[in-house]
Design a protein around this nucleic acid. Structure first.
Length: 397
DNA sequence: TCTGGGGTCCTAGGACCC
DNA sequence: TCTGGGGTCCTAGGACCC
């Protein structure tokens, strides 16, 4: 049995390397992928660009300032999607237990391969060499006992390497890392933890559960507390269905007034409709997202009885929501339209009705029990007159 | 350094139902 | 006489991830 059966495979500077596949002249240049507009940010930075301190999500203006020789390549998400499918096909050729995390990374559970491979790191080598020879891209792999540890390890494997964290010594490895490295600890949680004097994951493991729960809420506190002790029983779950589809755009020049906003909603709604139909789903909750020039952001959503995949319908709901919510005096820098509550196109619309019927049936059964139980209580000396009253009320309807 | 676009999950309050 | 508990759905916002 493998002690470290979980692999986290993460492509290195994925968008950049895909661009270099078809444009070899970009190799060794200081290149980033991203828009060139005044409000664009870096979508992916090459390792050459990272040497200048350039990172994903950094404003492009700033990236340019840091490296005069910067080459900016506009993103081609269609191409990245196609290459991603090739990469995932290799994963699935190795094992069916593949859980995609994003377009360029996945967890693999290789515990079933122990009869055919000497070790998980041998499997990692195989995957990396196949991605390299069959597609031409670099990838890094973390190998560990759990998803959490494997994901940490893959970051230390980069670029173009493998890192194994042996189960026997994983706490030594884990506890020296800064808390910010933890999956789920971002800016806000990181700041809260810093205030509590928590700098490393080891600090987190030793801080009182009560304090943590008070500051972060019981759910997040429990989750992080367990992870800090390398307790992560989550299994590798092969991919689930998409839950929402949305389109949003930040404009180079702010939109002003309802007419401009409505025109933009129209375009967005049509794009959402097209993508929803291509995915073979329909949705019943339409969401509009508005960001004003001062960066305050609001969302408004509305749920309709029957799921739709029609652009015009999405548009008309988005329009109503916006009409109610929009402050017409304020310039709008971002507008988004989304559809959620997705159901498969082939799925019969009945489903919710059946569920309602079931609930009703269950409720009448519960009522029957309550009727008997309730009357018993009322007849008990000193018993619940109050309960009797409540029972009365609960039956009204 | 004036801050993208595509997602997921969580929380919290209120409506509504029995 | 101000009484409840349990459940689900909806909405809005926020944290987080790549």
């Amino acid at each position: 049995v493998f002690s470290e059966p979980i692999l986290h495979v993460d492509m290195d500077a994925f968008f950049v390397e895909v661009e270099r596949l078809r444009r070899p002249e970009l190799r060794e240049r200081v290149v980033v992928v991203g828009g060139a507009g005044p409000r664009s940010v870096v979508a992916a930075a090459s390792y050459e660009a990272r040497r200048f301190g350039i990172r994903s999500a950094m404003p492009m203006v700033e990236a340019r300032r840091r490296a005069r020789e910067l080459v900016i390549v506009p993103p081609d998400h269609g191409e990245y999607g196609r290459v991603s499918e090739l990469v995932f096909a290799i994963f699935r050729d190795v094992t069916p237990l593949v859980e995609g995390l994003s377009i360029d990374e996945a967890f693999l559970d290789v515990s079933g391969l122990r009869l055919h491979h000497p070790s998980p790191s041998a499997v990692a080598d195989l995957i990396r060499s196949r991605i390299r020879t069959e597609i031409g891209l670099p990838a890094s792999v973390g190998v560990a006992a759990s998803k959490f540890m494997a994901k940490l390890a893959s970051q230390d494997a980069k670029p173009d390497g493998v890192k194994v964290v042996p189960a026997a010594t994983q706490l030594d490895y884990l506890w020296q890392l800064p808390v910010g490295r933890m999956w789920g600890v971002g800016a806000a949680t990181g700041a809260t933890l810093a205030r509590l004097g928590v700098g490393t994951i080891g600090d987190l493991a030793s801080i009182g559960e009560t304090v943590l729960a008070r500051e972060l809420g019981p759910s997040l506190a429990g989750h992080l507390g367990r992870l800090a002790n390398a307790e992560d029983p989550r299994g590798v779950v092969p991919d689930t269905e998409t839950k929402s589809i949305s389109v949003e755009e930040t404009y180079d020049v702010d939109l002003v007034g309802f007419d401009q906003v409505r025109a933009a909603l129209r375009t967005h709604a049509d794009r959402v409709g097209r993508r929803v139909r291509r995915a073979g789903v329909r949705g019943k909750t339409v969401t509009v997202k508005l960001r004003y020039s001062d960066f305050t952001t609001i969302t408004r959503s509305s749920t309709i009885p029957a799921a739709t995949d029609v652009g015009r319908e999405i548009f008309s709901i988005a329009c109503e929501l916006t009409e109610r919510a929009l402050d017409r005096d304020r310039p709008v820098r971002l507008l988004g339209v989304g559809l959620s509550g997705l159901v498969s196109e082939t799925e019969p619309e009945q489903l919710s009705v059946i569920t309602d019927d079931r609930r009703r049936a269950l409720d009448s059964a519960v009522d029957a029990v309550r009727d008997r139980f309730g009357s018993g209580i009322v007849e008990t000396p000193g018993g619940g007159v109050g309960r009797g009253a409540s029972h009365q009320k609960s039956d009204r309807s």
